[in-house]
């Protein structure tokens, strides 16, 4: 056997063989798991008394959302439940709020779960988003080194705290990624009379909340963060909560659908692919009483306090009072 005397030939042949197995395994498994998935979701629906959830025609649903919902682990709890109840298959795409909203506007996503009320309203007014519903809130906190060089512990509110940081030129790390958190931060700077914070003391990471907290911790800097991400990473950070409980620090989440009629004007092809039925089902699911209860319980076992407060049906202006 000349073949076996040529190690490189043998090795190459084995490589091809391995890849071939992978490839065939890929197709076979994919089809199989899709089948079992369909059958389990079918039986799951049948088991639920009263709720008749026939397998939807278009099963795929793209949810554009923010990194905070994914990083906290909330989506890992809610999405399997939604899939089981309705038979849809959700693709959660966790990106910055800026991209999440843009994906909805262009019709690249079916439904959005985001937390930047002003930008959301802009989409609703344009007609790009419909069926906007209040889901929940958590709050932002200002964290920083325990030494608190700008003395913001004694500040009256978040605006005062930001003023003090700017006056003392104390190091502040911003996400600078156009995310909901970043937008909130810029909003507070504006209220503090600083149109565009800049200078050596103001640094922008352009990264997600988790990474930005790491940077702030390393540099002993202040930053604005959502409570959930901070709690989840608290042990690994040398940062303390220095300012909290201010109504203007609320982080309010809404869910809303992409409007196929709006997308149709610019891109009929994309509009045809929007899964409006699935999007509506997801909005209904998020404001459903049972889901709201799960949201309110989420995180209690791990952190001793909930990460999100369910708000469906409430008036947005009544929150935090």
């Amino acid at each position: 056997m000349r073949f076996f005397k040529k190690p490189w030939l043998l090795a190459s042949a084995m490589l091809v063989l391995v890849f071939a197995v992978f490839l065939s395994g890929c197709g076979g498994k994919g089809a199989k798991s899709a089948q079992t998935e369909a059958s389990t979701s079918g039986s799951g629906a049948a088991n639920q008394e009263g709720s008749t959830a026939p397998a939807p025609e278009n099963r795929e649903l793209i949810l554009s959302t923010t990194t905070s919902t994914q990083d906290s682990g909330l989506l890992d709890v809610l999405i399997p439940l939604f899939e089981k109840n309705t038979g849809y298959r959700v693709k959660p795409i966790a990106v910055g709020t800026g991209q999440a909203l843009a994906m909805g506007e262009k019709g690249d996503a079916d439904v959005m779960l985001v937390h930047a009320p002003e930008s959301e309203m802009a989409l609703v007014e344009k007609g790009a988003a419909i069926n906007r519903q209040l889901v929940m809130h958590n709050d932002f906190i200002i964290v920083g080194p325990a030494s608190d060089p700008a003395g913001i512990r004694n500040a009256q509110d978040s605006v005062d705290a930001f003023k003090a940081i700017a006056e003392k030129q104390a190091l502040f790390v911003s996400r600078g990624d156009d995310s909901g958190t970043n937008k909130k931060e810029l909003e507070i700077w504006k209220k503090a009379g600083i149109e565009k914070p800049e200078g050596k003391w103001y640094q922008s990471t352009g990264q997600g909340m988790g990474a930005t907290l790491d940077v702030a911790s390393e540099k002993a800097a202040y930053t604005l963060t959502d409570r959930g991400t901070y709690l989840a990473k608290k042990e690994k950070l040398q940062l303390e909560i220095l300012k909290e409980g201010d109504p203007s620090l609320l982080n309010i989440y809404h869910v809303m659908q992409t409007n196929p009629d709006y997308v149709k004007k610019t891109n009929p092809n994309a509009a045809r692919m929007i899964n409006a039925e699935g999007a509506k089902a997801f909005v209904d699911f998020m404001v459903d009483e049972k889901t709201q209860k799960i949201i309110g319980e989420f995180g209690k076992d791990k952190f001793g306090q909930p990460l999100f407060f369910p708000d469906a049906g409430k008036d947005e202006s009544s929150l935090g009072k």
Binding site: D108, A270, I274
Partner: peptide, 10 residues
């Protein structure tokens, strides 16, 4: 992306 030239492929 759906809004792109090959969006139809899904």
């Amino acid at each position: 992306w759906r809004s792109g030239p090959f969006g139809k492929l899904g």
